[in-house]
């Protein structure tokens, strides 16, 4: 007999606890009142650059666009004090052009979305083949989507088995598991899905908020719920899992607020791109704009940095 839905969810919540939405939103509102100035601001901005998964996930992506994105990723600005970003994030078909542009020993890693991103609605066999191809073509990291349908139906074992299968297909490449928070809807579900994923993952793998392809993406609220899940899981098992909020983080100010959440929830050990990433595209230019502002004391003319994420 298949498991009944309430039983599956209730069993899980009695193990991992629930989340109060009002309380979470009050907590994260406090992060937005932190005032980050001067050296602390500069440090935070550069840290955010180094944590970026610079992303292009468009139907109209071309090898040329991806190559130019890669060059920007390695050298975001003419100021050599600004670090390269952590990774570029592309579709599997764009992994080869990215590898060609970056070379074998690049300071920037290649992350590829796979598993029928963003819906995941393909047979498992197809999804696994996609992962293997991306890794074979030179992807260093894989971003997968979970089976939200199975999750909402209470088929937790299926969700976990699929993550485990993708993990095996990744080999040594770190895996980022996208929960697609907007489709899970509640903070309770986000916490539940975080635990299901982490119980399969290895140290150095990530959980990730969203694909960026739905209406609602990373928020301080779902970031907080996932950070707290990571913290509880780490304190329980000793396995440190990374976190990647993606989509919707467009300004440097937002990025600093997310980093404040990391600092005050998980502490210093997560303030590194080995454990925290931003999935974003237009964020980079705002970070650079703010770094230049801190350096020169004045905002540069708007045309010094492109506004559009399209034009890397």
């Amino acid at each position: 007999m298949p498991p009944t839905v309430p039983a599956a969810f209730r069993r899980l919540f009695s193990e991992i606890g629930t989340v109060d939405a009002v309380g979470v939103e009050e907590r994260v509102a406090k992060y937005t009142t932190r005032s980050i100035k001067k050296r602390a601001k500069l440090f935070g901005l550069k840290l955010a650059v180094s944590m970026l998964d610079l992303t292009t996930l468009e139907g109209k992506d071309t090898p040329g666009k991806v190559e130019s994105l890669c060059r920007k990723a390695v050298r975001p600005h003419d100021d050599p004090g600004i670090p390269p970003v952590a990774a570029v994030c592309v579709y599997p078909a764009m992994v080869r052009p990215a590898r060609r542009a970056l070379g074998a020993a690049a300071p920037v890693r290649i992350a590829s979305v796979a598993t029928a991103f963003p819906s995941g609605q393909m047979p498992l066999k197809t999804r696994l083949a996609e992962v293997r191809t991306a890794v074979a073509d030179g992807a260093d990291e894989i971003d997968m989507v979970i089976n939200r349908g199975a999750f909402l139906a209470g088929e937790f074992a299926r969700v976990q088995d699929e993550i485990a299968a993708v993990l095996a297909a990744c080999g040594d490449a770190p895996l980022k598991v996208i929960l697609e928070t907007s489709e899970l809807e509640t903070y309770d579900n986000i916490r539940a899905a975080s635990f299901l994923a982490m119980r399969v993952l290895r140290a150095g793998d990530f959980i990730k908020t969203s694909t960026g392809k739905t209406a609602a993406n990373a928020t301080l609220g779902n970031n907080q719920v996932m950070l707290e899940a990571i913290r509880d899981f780490y304190l329980e098992t000793g396995t440190p899992v990374g976190m990647k909020p993606a989509g919707g983080i467009r300004t440097a100010k937002q990025a600093l607020q997310f980093l404040v959440a990391v600092k005050e929830t998980l502490g210093d050990a997560w303030l590194t791109n080995a454990r925290y990433r931003f999935g974003a595209s237009s964020l980079l230019n705002d970070l650079l704009r703010q770094i230049e502002k801190e350096r020169t004391g004045a905002y540069q003319a708007p045309y010094y940095f492109s506004e559009a994420a399209e034009s890397y």
Binding site: I36, K263, L271
Partner: peptide, 18 residues
């Protein structure tokens, strides 16, 4: 309660006076 591992709340990123 299982034995707790420590989180590090150190001075890697100190806020400047505001």
């Amino acid at each position: 309660v299982r034995p707790l591992r420590e989180l590090i709340f150190g001075d890697l990123w100190e806020y400047d006076p505001a």
